[in-house]
Design a protein around this nucleic acid. Structure first.
Lengths: 220, 220
DNA sequence: CGAGCCGTTCAGGTGCCGTTCAGGTGCCCG
DNA sequence: CGGGCACCTGAACGGCACCTGAACGGCTCG
C-alpha cells in the first residue's frame, strides 16, 4: 500500500514517515501545498495523510481540487487540537476521517488500516481468499491455517492483490503501489516475486492473465 | 511498560515515580494538567496514574478529552479519601480503576498490574509463551521451570513482547515503550539486548522479521 | 577508593532478500 | 509449422539489516 504524507513540520513529518514505513507501507512525502497537489494528482496513492495549514497552499483547497478531479483515495486529515470548524470543513471537502494533533502514532496506524479496509470494501481486518488468510494488523499470512512466512515485498504484493480479489492487476499497477516514486521500469522483479509467492502459496493461488496482469484465485 | 504519573504534590509524585521505577516500569511524570494532557495525547503509554485536583486543568476533563480522542490506555485515578462522588464521575469519564488517598504502595502496584494485564487481554498475572514464563508480580522469569536471571532492560523488553504475543513489534515501538522520552535514535542497543535475551532464552525464542521488527516464538 | 554490574558503543562479520541475468516454456500469430 | 513475445524459473550477486564479541564508562555498593 502506498501512502502520501503531507506535513510541513519536519519533525512530525519524519516521525510519520518512519512509523508508516515500519508498518510496511510505501511512503511518499510532500512538505508544501504545491508539491502535495501535484503528487496527489499524478501518483496512484492508496491513502493520503493530510495536514491542514500548509505553506504555499491550503490543505482544504487541495483536497477539494483532488475530489473535483475525481481522485477518490481515502484522506485522513490532521487538524489542530479542538478546532472542530476545521473538522467540519474537512469532512465537507471530502475527507474520510480526521485526527487531532497531537496524536498517538498507534491510533493513526489503526485509523489508516480502517480507511484502507473500508476503501476496498472489506469489513474485517482479516482478508481471506480461498485457503489464504492475511491479517493486516499483525502482517501474518496463513494457508489452510498453517502459517506462511513471507518477505516484506512478497507481503506487500499479496496484500495489494487481496485488497482487490478477483480483479486483474497489471504489473505496472503493482509496481506503482508497492514501490515509492521513480522505480526503474524494465525489470522482471515482479515476475520473480510472483513466482516466489506461488511457490509458497500454491501455483493456482495467483493466475496470470496474459497481456493484462495477475489475478487472485483460479478463474473458476 | 511505560507509565505516565500525573501528580502535582512533589512528595507523593516522587515517591510514586521511585516505586514504579523500582518495579521495572518506565515512568514519565507530569505535575500539572496541561503537561499531562499533552503527554497523554502524544506518547504511547501503557497505563496512566492520574491524580484528580490538579493545577491548571482538572484531571477529569483531561481524562474525558483523552477518551474522546480515542486514547484507550488504562487509567487509574487517585481520589481523596471517601469522596465517592469523584469515583463515580471518574468511572463515567472513562477511568478503569480508582484508589483512595492515602494508599499503600503495594496496592497501587497490584492494581496497576491488573490493569495492564486486562488491557492486553490476559487473565493471569503470569505470562507464558512456549517454555518461557514471566511472573509480573515478582518480575521472575523461568525457562522450562528453571529460573533465568535478566537485567532490568532485558526484563522490560521481554515483558513488552510477552504482552503482545505473536505480534510484530518494531524496534522503534520497543524503544518508545521501554525508554522514557527522548532517546538517542541511531543506536543498536535494542539489537544487542535482543541478542542477550536470545542467549539466555534460546535462539528461537525471539524471531526477527527483517525490515519490520521482532516477534515472540518461532512462526512454527 | 576499588570492584563489579550493566547499558551502550564500536567494528567487523553474516546471511537474507531484492534484483539481475540467462535461458526455458508455452501461447498466439502468420 | 516456425518465429516472436510474454511470462516463468533457477542461479548468482551484492547491499544492507541485523548479529556479535569486546571494550568502555557510569553507577552502585562495600
Amino acid at each position: 500500500m502506498r501512502v502520501l504524507v503531507v506535513e510541513d513540520e519536519p519533525g512530525i513529518g519524519r516521525h510519520l514517515e518512519e512509523a508508516l514505513t515500519d508498518a510496511g507501507y510505501v511512503v511518499d512525502r510532500a512538505a508544501d501545498g504545491e508539491e502535495a497537489h501535484f503528487l496527489g494528482d499524478t501518483e496512484p496513492y492508496d491513502a493520503v495523510v493530510l495536514d491542514l495549514g500548509l505553506p504555499k497552499r491550503d490543505g482544504l483547497s487541495i483536497l477539494r481540487a483532488w475530489r473535483a478531479a475525481g481522485r477518490n483515495f481515502p484522506v485522513l486529515i490532521l487538524t489542530a487540537r479542538g478546532s472542530w470548524r476545521e473538522k467540519v470543513e474537512g469532512i465537507d471537502a471530502g475527507a474520510d476521517d480526521y485526527l487531532a494533533k497531537p496524536f498517538a502514532t498507534e491510533e493513526l496506524l489503526a485509523r489508516l488500516r480502517a480507511l484502507l479496509r473500508r476503501a476496498s470494501g472489506h469489513a474485517s481486518p482479516i482478508l481471506r481468499s480461498g485457503a489464504i488468510e492475511l491479517d493486516t494488523r499483525t502482517a501474518r499470512v496463513t494457508l489452510n491455517g498453517a502459517p506462511v512466512t513471507l518477505t516484506a515485498l512478497e507481503y506487500r504484493i499479496l496484500a495489494y492483490l487481496m485488497h482487490r480479489p478477483g480483479q486483474i492487476v497489471s504489473q505496472s499497477e503493482l509496481t506503482e503501489h508497492v514501490y515509492a516514486q521513480d522505480f526503474d521500469r524494465d525489470s522482471n522483479t515482479i515476475e520473480v516475486l510472483i513466482g516466489r509467492l506461488r511457490k509458497k502459496l500454491g501455483r493456482e493461488a495467483i493466475s496470470t492473465v496474459r497481456g493484462l496482469g495477475y489475478r487472485l484465485s483460479a478463474p473458476a
